[in-house]
Design a protein around this nucleic acid. Structure first.
Lengths: 213, 213
DNA sequence: CGGGATCCCTTAGGATACTG
DNA sequence: CAGTATCCTAAGGGATCCCG
């Protein structure tokens, strides 16, 4: 079970032995958002083979990164405190990789958990603190995300809810986050479709969340 | 050449496509310390197959993470500015993986570049700022590291030089960095052998560099 | 001699079907 | 729904060889 090792006595090597296998950090990414069942993980990682998902879950469990939640009849996976230590690393990796995102290709998907992580790494607490509390409802395909910004605190959860601004979007939201397309043009070009609420609030959204291109 | 992709339009996935292949981040780790030649990289990664090293260098070059240094007859690899963006991530990964390091096994090596990165992730600028400037010479097998702390600035370079304290060490230095073994005992037990200078300075070293176990 | 390229073999990962 | 089982391909491991 011990992952192939690098033969080095070093923290980076050890970290990569624990979470460096293919798909491992994407599983961690989704579990950062919240506990997930096997099928939810599989749905969030559409191309992962079932046997590989099962293998990774076992390895990550053995590594102390995640565990099956106790006191629940049905199997649910969640990060351990040690695994939660990866959170800033995954967020930083996301911000770094964001800069290398090109145009979305047809076969690429944008999952709710991935967008949640992107929003968390794009969140600018200092900017948000100076703005009034705001709730956004983002529709992503069939999924809904409720994004609440209160002072310098961000909360993202799945599902609908009371929101000041509701909009539907897709991969094109990247251009809004990077500032390559200003909010007004994001609406006129259809990158973002406002469903409810004053469309000016999209400007507030864009200044609250920003990632360098 | 395009690395196998994850089929997701997401920063984390993209980052892993660029630097998630086996060995890739260890190459980056060593290049964070400084530009390296092919043979130096191979020496710092004793178990990497030559074909894999060559393949990774090409992929990382295509990904814009590193390049062959211009204006040098001999090939030298160095990080691009974009690749240097991985520095805080690699340091954080090193700190995270450090906590999962067990006892060193016989076949595991500790290379100068890996120790350099470990020291950088263990460095506590706030503590160092309150201490007098100090230079340490660490001997690691046949290699020498000159560690200079000046105010809240750390500089680590290979080779010998003027130092206030010179010591020889090995993998056991982990117990000193984690605080599991106090400086005096590190000396009496032989984890660290003082070669020159007042051994009290090892206490200063231990408070300047710290990683949680 | 440093900097790779080429072999061959082993094993992890992808695709898909199947089971408790 | 939560995984196993199987089969196949492609990437990694290891040694050697080649070239400027």
């Amino acid at each position: 079970m011990a992952a192939r090792d690098y033969g080095q006595y070093d923290g980076v090597s050890r970290a990569l032995e624990l979470v460096g296998e293919r798909w491992a950090l994407l599983i961690v990414r989704d579990l950062i958002v919240g506990p997930r069942r096997y099928g939810e993980l599989a749905a969030g990682l559409p191309r992962i083979p079932s046997n590989v998902l099962a293998a990774r879950l076992k390895e990550l469990q053995a590594a102390g990164v995640l565990r099956r939640a106790p006191h629940s009849r049905i199997p649910v996976y969640e990060l351990t405190p040690y695994g939660r230590g990866l959170e800033p690393i995954v967020l930083a990796l996301g911000a770094w990789g964001f800069r290398a995102l090109g145009e979305p290709r047809e076969e690429q998907v944008l999952t709710p958990d991935a967008l949640t992580i992107a929003l968390r790494s794009a969140f600018r607490p200092a900017v948000a603190a100076a703005l009034p509390a705001t709730a956004y409802a983002a529709r992503l395909g069939a999924a809904d995300l409720l994004i609440r910004v209160t002072g310098d605190v961000l909360a993202v959860q799945r599902g609908e809810g009371q929101a000041d601004l509701a909009f539907a979007t897709g991969p094109g939201i990247r251009l809004l986050l990077s500032g390559e397309v200003p909010p007004e043009r994001a609406i006129t070009t259809g990158l973002v479709q406002v469903l409810r609420g004053p469309s000016e609030l999209l400007g507030r959204f864009a200044s609250t969340f920003h990632l360098a291109a």
